[in-house]
Design a protein around this nucleic acid. Sequence first.
DNA 1: AGTTATTGGTGGTCTGACCACTATTGAATC
DNA 2: GATTCAATAGTGGTCAGACCACCAATAACT
Lengths: 217, 217
Amino acid sequence: MSFSIKQKVYQEVIKELQRYIERNNLNPGDKLPSERELSERLNAGRSSVREALRALELIGLVETRHGEGTYLREYRSFQTVELLSSFILRQDNMKDDLTFTKKILEKEAAKLAFARISVSDIQELKAILDVNSSNPLTKHRAFFKYLFEKTENLLLMKIWSLMDEFSHAVCVYHFEESFYNTLLKHYSERDYESIDPLFSGPSEGEQLRGIFSLDCF
Amino acid sequence: MSFSIKQKVYQEVIKELQRYIERNNLNPGDKLPSERELSERLNAGRSSVREALRALELIGLVETRHGEGTYLREYRSFQTVELLSSFILRQDNMKDDLTFTKKILEKEAAKLAFARISVSDIQELKAILDVNSSNPLTKHRAFFKYLFEKTENLLLMKIWSLMDEFSHAVCVYHFEESFYNTLLKHYSERDYESIDPLFSGPSEGEQLRGIFSLDCF
DNA sequence: AGTTATTGGTGGTCTGACCACTATTGAATC
DNA sequence: GATTCAATAGTGGTCAGACCACCAATAACT
């Protein structure tokens, strides 16, 4: 009585690929054998090999270049988290949580960026506010995109952008006009302590009202 | 002149599936159309549809039963984490982002939960600490799971568990022994202001050192 | 009524064909 | 000899069709 569950071919291929990578000590950027070669060497149909490679590609372990080949990739969990999050978002009716969680991320980004914001950055941010003064949405997005980049936490930014995209489909929000300039003021005065309260807003306990403008449809 | 980047068919199929799930409001356990039907409806070859489904299966979003069909699945990381971990080990540039971002979420959860924590909750949390006193990892997970549930922000919790699962495959961390009790002390003394600094730790500016114990492999 | 055989639908796999893209090769040109 | 450009071989991208194995509902039989 063997416990070895009959694996699908594409799963076997993945395992074989792992062994291959291990044996040959492949690093990110290195080339994998071609689909046809793998198909032959592993005694599997090319379609099965492709199923394996596509799956690895989707989760970001492998990069495929048309006409060139398949390459081992510097792993980033972003695509995966992104994809999973999108499914999770659809599965539950958590659209209410969306706006609030997004705001949390924005607050943290604003605080994280604090240490890395220079005088020229503040000028940049002011320029962003000016250019987008007519459209509060693009202003908000551009403003925080800059801050998130300053945090140098790519994962944080990815999650935020994802939420941003989703929130646009559900419910658009932005801060009041004065918010952005107040934040910049805190930056220029090196006043870290005032950032958090700025996001919490004047009305303690209330989560979305006060500093927010909500345009839902 | 269209700017739409030419996507691969299997990626389009995934997107279509997401839309389909959204439209029909499918929940975990519900059945997806058959491969052949999808192939027909989306004007794609069956092999392309399979590439999409296999990829979704690999990351655990979808479950396939031979002879029955393909079903939407309650997300579980299972194989994904195991698979990714073996790939990730050499590449640790994402490790910092993940751990750090996860910590941010935990901090926010601790603060959000503050308003909703009752005396009995504190007892519950103490019990959790006692029961898991031997294993710092399960203790950390159980402790914060409770807090995240208290926030009643399902999205925040989902994202956190996602990261938690991923982070376990990469690098395990937990707080120092004293951390949990200190947090509970703040709760019982209704001392909201001290929560944030507790997470920031004694060494200002340093992100991961100090209050953390990092067991990487 | 209960059991068994049939059948239709499903995923699992392979093959072969064709297209599109890339990089290399090699010939024609300067 | 160096440069340019066209042919070519190798690669991934996609599709269609053919089987097989498996499952469940149905029909036929006892």
